[in-house]
Computed example of a mutant assay.
Amino acid sequence: MKEFIGTGVALITPFLKDLSIDVEGLKRVVNFNIENGIDYLVVLGTTAESATLSNEEKQVVIATIKGANNNRVPLVLGIGGNNTAAVSQEMQSQDLTGISAILSVSPYYNKPTQEGIYQHFATIAKVASLPIIIYNVPGRTASNIEPETVVRLANDFKNIVAIKEAAGDIVQAMKLISVCPKDFLVISGDDMITLPMILAGGAGVISVIGEGFPKEFSNMVTFGLEKNVDKAYNIHYKIAPAIDYIFEEGNPAGIKYVFKKLGICEDYVRLPLVGISSSLSLKLDAFINSFDS
């Protein structure tokens, strides 16, 4: 799983004004990230607004990213949900050609117990044909995957190879790193604590801010993995204000505005999400203008 050590980015889905998929814009996003040093791409994660995409649109997104990528970097596909049977079926029916791993979010809304979470991932692991990266994001799912449950899954299923840990809790992240098997990857899902997680022994990040500033964020991650602390933190503190800004009014509205400012695609989002406020756009404008200078 060395291909998932480093910087992964959770790709947005650009839309045109009529809210149809902006295929050309998506190609530009893919090329921008690969050309600026990211290590792998995550397709149809939360940041892709996958909850508002039809099955047909999801296939368009997958095909577009595969074509633009042209086998240059590994692809991770998001397949998850709160209906275990449906997730298992999708794992088996989806064409996974050209995909290196699956990112699967912990069941949301249902608020399962730790045993329920274990049984959910155990069920999909038994049918999955690719490695699975567990996604823990309690701020969205309303339940946390405890480190003990992660260890149990990692030990019981060899194809559960990593966790995207987005609880925003550095203490929990450090516990995961210390108790999980040595070959199990603990990947940051929280941009602000990515660097301390890496310095504590984490494997890298699946990032949102990284797709807007891929060169700088990838460099930070590389320096962190090399334990070049001063250079890594210099970049962290330079980017940190933008991390707060892009999440201030919800994801992916903030990062989409960054792409608009960079001239890569427009910042349209689908309801129930809305675009960022004029006051936040002014803050992002000022940051990007000063960042480039």
Rank of each mutant, 00 (worst) to 15 (best):
A86I: 10
A86C: 07
Q89K: 14
E90L: 08
M91P: 05
M91I: 15
Q92E: 12
Q94L: 04
L96C: 07
I99C: 13
I99G: 15
S100T: 07
S100Y: 02
A101E: 06
I102A: 05
S104A: 10
V105Y: 05
V105F: 05
S106D: 06
P107E: 08
Y108M: 05
Y109D: 15
Y109H: 13
N110W: 10
N110C: 11
N110G: 12
T113G: 15
Q114G: 13
E115D: 15
I117G: 08
Y118E: 05
H120L: 12
A122N: 15
T123P: 04
T123F: 07
I124F: 15
I124D: 00
V127G: 08
V127R: 09
L130Y: 08
L130W: 14
P131S: 04
P131Y: 03
I134K: 00
N136C: 01
V137A: 07
V137G: 02
P138G: 10
T141K: 10
T141P: 06
T141W: 07
A142P: 06
S143Y: 12
N144Y: 14
N144C: 07
N144A: 12
I145N: 09
E146G: 03
P147D: 02
T149G: 04
V150T: 03
V151N: 03
V151C: 01
R152V: 02
N155D: 09
K158F: 12
K158S: 14
N159M: 01
I160C: 05
V161N: 09
V161S: 05
A162F: 14
I163E: 01
K164E: 07
